Simulated assay, not measured.
Amino acid sequence: MCYFEMTRWSCGYWKWGNFKQQCNKEYRTGETCGLKLVFDTAYQMDHCKICDTIGKKERRKNKMKDDINRWRREGNRRATIEKTQQDVDDLERQIYDLWETHLEKQRTL
């Protein structure tokens, strides 16, 4: 039951910060007992790094989809469309994995 700082973002994501205070169960200097309690919470009004990364990947995915639609109208770019569609699928998988990580962290609090 040692005390740590905690950072919490407006999106609900959080992370442990620095060690702040030792509890009375641990007598060795510099050691912690293994249980973490919140000493202080620093609230951040912006989004976490995962949300920023998701936003960047979403914008990139939307740009690729717009390009695919434009190329289909123009015609004669089948290989480019197929390659870009594979890239879009990869981005969607990455975005899904990031959301899963984000939601799992929110559920653990």
Rank of each mutant, 00 (worst) to 15 (best):
Q44K: 07
R93V: 11
D67H: 04
R8I: 12
E100L: 15
D87L: 10
Q21I: 04
S10F: 10
E100I: 15
L98P: 04
L37H: 04
M6C: 13
C2K: 03
I54G: 08
R73D: 12
R70Q: 13
D87K: 15
T101R: 11
H102Q: 08
I81N: 03
K15M: 12
G12C: 06
R72T: 13
N24S: 07
T29L: 10
M45R: 06
G34M: 05
T101G: 07
T29Q: 07
Q22V: 01
D97K: 14
C33F: 07
R77Q: 14
K83C: 11
E92T: 13
I54V: 15
R77P: 01
W16D: 03
E31A: 15
T32R: 06
E74F: 05
N24M: 01
D97P: 02
W99S: 06
I95Y: 08
R72A: 13
E58M: 02
G17W: 03
M64T: 00
K25A: 06
R60Y: 13
K105Q: 12
K65A: 07
T80F: 06
T80I: 03
Y96W: 15
E5K: 13
W14K: 03
E74H: 08
K15R: 07
Y43D: 06
G12T: 07
S10A: 14
C11W: 00
K63I: 04
Y43W: 01
T29H: 04
T101N: 07
C11E: 00
